[in-house]
Design a protein around this nucleic acid. Structure first.
Lengths: 204, 204, 204, 204
DNA sequence: AATGAATGAGCGTTCATTCAT
DNA sequence: GATGAATGAACGCTCATTCAT
C-alpha cells in the first residue's frame, strides 16, 4: 500500500504515531467529516494549528491511518497466502488474521468501513481500490477453490457467500472493544464455527 | 416512533415524500454530514432555501426518513412476532422481512447503518435507542428460545451469535441494489441457509 | 481576454459590478494579498461569507477585475491599431487611450501594475502574459516603424525606449486621481510632449 | 534615518548583512506580504524560528533593508546637492546616482517601490515619508530652478514633470538586472537623453 | 546559533438557515 | 411555493512568533 510519507521524513516518529492514534480514535468515534481538527487537537492536548507542524492536512492524517493499517493487514494476509494451505485452512487463517488486525487497529478498521466507499473517488486514496481488488481476489479465489475441492457448498451464489463472509468479519470492528471478554483468536474461532457450520443444530 | 410533524400541516404530502426520497438517496450516497442542503435541492430541482418551506431543517429530513423506515420495519416485525412461530421459523421470518425492508428502504437502511450510532446521543433521535432495545429483545430472545428448545447450538456465545446474525443481514444494505439478480426473498433464503447451516459441506 | 465568468451566469449584473468596483478599490489601496475578504465585505456593507454568493473566491474577483479591464483596454487599442496611422500618431493615440483607461479603471490598473508579475505564474491568469506579448508587439512595433521612418531617434536602444514609454505612462496610475486638475487627455498631451520633445529647452 | 538596532548588540554583523540580502531578494521577488518567514529561512538554510535570533521580527528585516538603502541613497544625493551644480547638471547627476543605487540595491528599490505607499502609515516607517518630502524638495526644487534659468521648458505642469522624471527613473528597478547589457551609467545616459531631449527626431 | 515544537490570531471559505419579495 | 440575497458560526489551514533545549 504505497503512499506519500509525511513532512518530517525521519524525526520524532513517536509523536506522530501518538497523534495519529488519537486522531484515529476520534475519526472512528465521530466520523471523519464530523471530526474537526480542533477536536483532534483537544484530544491531543494542543491547539489546532499545532497539528500542522506534524501533518500536512486533516486528510493526510486519514491517509496515514488507513495506509498504515492496510500495510500491516497485507503483511499478515500475504504471509497466510504464501503458506499455500487448503481452502478451509486458508479461510480460517484469514479470518483469524482479520480479527487480530481489528484488535490492533480497531479505529482504523472502523474508519475504513465507514469512509472507504467515498474515499476511493479521490486520487489520493486510489490505493484503497487496489487493496479491495486484491482482497476480493484472495478471498473469492479461496472460496472458489474450496467449492471446487468439495469443502465448501456449491449450492450458494459464490459472490453472495463472499460478501457474507467478508462483511460478517469486518463489521465486528463496529462493536469490538480490545481487552473485552474474548480474545481476537477466541472471537475468530466462534465466528469461524458459525460461518462454517451454521448456528442451527445439525443432523435434524 | 414519535416524531415532530412539519411546517405545513396538511398540504401536498406527495411532494414531501418525493423530496424525502431524494434526500434519502443523497444522504445514503454521500453521508449525512457530507451532504449539503444545496446538494439535495439541486437533486430536487430547486434552490436550497426553498427546502425550508417543506422542512424545518436538514436534521428534520433525516428524522423523518429514519422514523418512517422504522415505523414500517416494526409493522413487519410486530406481525412476525405476533404470529408466535417457533424460534427457527421466527428467525427465518425476521430475516426475510429484513431483506424486504432493505429492498423497500435501501437508502434509509444505509443511512441508519452509518449514522445511528452518533444519532442516539441527540435527544431528538432517542427513538433510535428505543428501537434498538426492542430489536435486541426480539432477536436475542428468539435465539435464546431456540437454544433452550435445542434448535440452535448451545456451544456459542449467545451475544456473539446475535451480533453475527444482526450484522450479517443489515450490512447487505451497503451493497444491495434493488432490481438486481436476486429478489429479497432469494437473498434471504441463501443468507438463512448460510447462517443456519454454514458454508462448509456437512457430514465429513 | 477570455475568462471564466461567474456563478450566476446572467442575473443581477449590477450588484456584481458594484461589488467588483468596491473590491478593486480595496485591492488597489491595500494590495491583493493584504486585503482580507472581510475588509471587502465591510466596504460593501455585508458579511464576508455573503460575498461568496456572488463570487467563487477572492481570486475570482481579482480575475474578473483584471480581465474586465484588459478587455476594455484592448477594445480601445485595437481600434487605434486598426486606424493604421503613422508611427508618431499611433503612439499619441495609444498614450491618450492609455490615460483614458487609467481614468476609467484606475483601481484595476494599479492592481495590474502591482500584481501582474506574480500572477502570470498561475494558470488562471495566463491571459495576462498573452496580453503582455500582444502589448509589446504593438508598442515596440510602432516604435521600430517610427525609427525606420525617421520620426523617432535611431541613437537609442529601442527596448530601453519601449520600457521608458511604457512605464512612464502606466506608472501614472499610482498617483492619478479621477476628477483632479487635469483631464486624462490633458495629462496625455503633456506626457506626450515630454516623451516626444523632452523636458529641456530646445535649440541651445 | 532612525532605526532600532537589533537583538544581539555586537555579534557577527556579516551574518546579518547576508541574511538581510537574502530576505531582500525574496521580498522583492514575491512581495513583502506574500513572503513567509519560513521562505526566507529556507533560502538562508535555516529554520524559521532561528531567524528570530538575529531579528526581532519580519517587519524589522524590512525596516533594516529599507533604511539601509535610504541611508546610502542620501549619502549619494547629499554629495550631489552639495556640489551646487547647475539645474541640468544636478538632474543628470541625480539620475546617474539613482541608477547606481538601483544597481547596488535592486531588491531594496523594488521593495520600496511596491511597499512604501502602505508603509508610511505605520509609525515605525515614518522615515519613509520624511525621505519622500526631502526627495521631492530636492528634485522639484532643481526642476523649478531649471525653469527659472531657462534650461527646462516652462510650458509644462511642473509637478507633472516631477512625477514623470521621478517615476521614469525608479520604475526601472522593476526590470533592471545587474550585470546586464548596459551599465547603470549607460542606462542613465540614455534615460537622460530621452527625458531631456525626447524620443522624437528634432528640427522638423 | 540553531532546532523542534508549540501558540494564537486571523484568513479564505462553507453551509445551514432566514426572510423579504 | 419558490427565489435571491444575506447571515453568522464554524471550519481547515497559515503564519509570525516564542521558547526550552
Amino acid at each position: 500500500m504505497p503512499n506519500n510519507k509525511k513532512t518530517p521524513a525521519t524525526p520524532a516518529p513517536e509523536r506522530r504515531r501518538q497523534l495519529l492514534a488519537t486522531a484515529a480514535e476520534v475519526f472512528a468515534a465521530e466520523g471523519y467529516n464530523a471530526t474537526t481538527v480542533r477536536r483532534i487537537a483537544d484530544a491531543a492536548g494542543m491547539l489546532a494549528g499545532s497539528l500542522y507542524y506534524h501533518f500536512d492536512s486533516k486528510e493526510s492524517m486519514l491517509d496515514e491511518i488507513l495506509s498504515g493499517f492496510l500495510d500491516e493487514l497485507w503483511e499478515g494476509y500475504d504471509a497466510v497466502l504464501a503458506a499455500a494451505l487448503g481452502p478451509r485452512e486458508t479461510i480460517e487463517a484469514l479470518v483469524t488474521e482479520s480479527f487480530r488486525e481489528i484488535d490492533r487497529h480497531r479505529a482504523a478498521v472502523a474508519i475504513y468501513q465507514k469512509e472507504s466507499k467515498h474515499l476511493v473517488a479521490h486520487e489520493r486514496f486510489r490505493y484503497l481500490a487496489d487493496s479491495q481488488v486484491k482482497f476480493e481476489k484472495a478471498w473469492l479465489g479461496t472460496l472458489e477453490r474450496g467449492v471446487a475441492d468439495g469443502v465448501f457448498r456449491d449450492d450458494l451464489d459464490i459472490r453472495l457467500t463472499y460478501r457474507f463472509v467478508r462483511d460478517t468479519v469486518w463489521v465486528a470492528a463496529s462493536w469490538y472493544r480490545p481487552g473485552g471478554l474474548h480474545s481476537p483468536e477466541e472471537i475468530a474461532r466462534q465466528y469461524l464455527s458459525m460461518v462454517l457450520e451454521g448456528i442451527a443444530v445439525r443432523g435434524r
